[in-house]
């Protein structure tokens, strides 16, 4: 589904990703952990196509085809979704209008009929209850005045509406209270199926109590330096990144 090969990327001449290799198969859940500033958000955004980052080497394949030349919206249409670490506020644009525009843009490009306001409301009603989102959020401006947790929950709600093939969740679990964490996790578990994959960027192993990853990777200084099963997350929680760093130094 998603294949990242020797990916190098820089921003303003500063190399940040230094040779990432990662393969995500359909239905798999991968967790990416790593210290602050190691490049996790950069990786997420490069996959999503943010053009402030320049890919200098390597390739990203989605369903076997390179997506490097695709615009961010084109990547969205083929089924790539990224939940932002810091969702932006869009004053004056209601959540409902924003989402309907997004959904219809996607449907249009997939050759599906667009949904009118009534059809759309019907469609999202159940999505809303499953994510535990208050209906009043729909008429509010996108993320404006939302609490940190509400913003994260809204990201998951958008994902549920857009039904992507792969969801990249950049620290969606940060800043959530225990109930919200449960709701977000349930949202992911509900969307998870044998076709749909997830990449969870996280600092905490606690979300992995609710969502069971198939793999855990450690990203340090722009490279994946260690991969393992979910026990790796537990080990990191207890020992921190120092032992891995030490081991790396020793090999150099």
């Amino acid at each position: 589904m998603l294949e990242i090969k020797n990916l190098h990327a820089k921003i303003e001449d500063k190399p940040i990703l230094k040779g990432i290799n990662l393969t995500v198969k359909p239905g798999e859940i991968h967790a990416i952990m790593g210290p602050n500033g190691s490049g996790k958000s950069t990786l997420s955004q490069v996959i999503a196509g943010r053009d402030s980052y320049e890919v200098t080497e390597g390739d990203i394949l989605f369903n076997g085809e390179s997506i490097l030349e695709m615009e961010p919206e084109e990547r969205a249409w083929v089924g790539l979704f990224m939940a932002f670490q810091y969702p932006v506020e869009i004053p004056g644009v209601s959540n409902a209008y924003f989402l309907r525009t997004a959904l219809n843009a996607k449907r249009k490009n997939l050759g599906l009929p667009e949904l009118d306001a009534m059809e759309f409301m019907k469609y999202i009603k159940e999505k809303m209850t499953s994510i535990g989102l208050d209906p009043s959020m729909l008429s509010r401006a996108v993320n404006e005045g939302f609490s940190g947790g509400e913003k994260k929950r809204n990201e998951i709600f958008q994902m549920a509406v857009l039904e992507p093939k792969i969801g990249i969740l950049d620290e969606t679990d940060s800043g959530l209270d225990i109930d919200a964490l449960k709701i977000v996790s349930e949202g992911v578990n509900m969307l998870k199926n044998s076709e749909r994959s997830f990449v969870l960027v996280t600092h905490y192993q606690r979300i992995l109590n609710y969502i069971t990853p198939d793999y855990v990777h450690v990203l340090m200084n722009g490279k994946i330096v260690k991969s393992g099963g979910k026990e790796l997350a537990l080990q990191l929680e207890q020992e921190g990144y120092a032992p891995i760093e030490k081991a790396l130094m020793a090999t150099v």
Partner: peptide, 10 residues
């Protein structure tokens, strides 16, 4: 970029 990631053109 937020819009574009959701599939809405610039």
């Amino acid at each position: 970029f937020y819009f574009r990631q959701r599939g809405i053109s610039a």
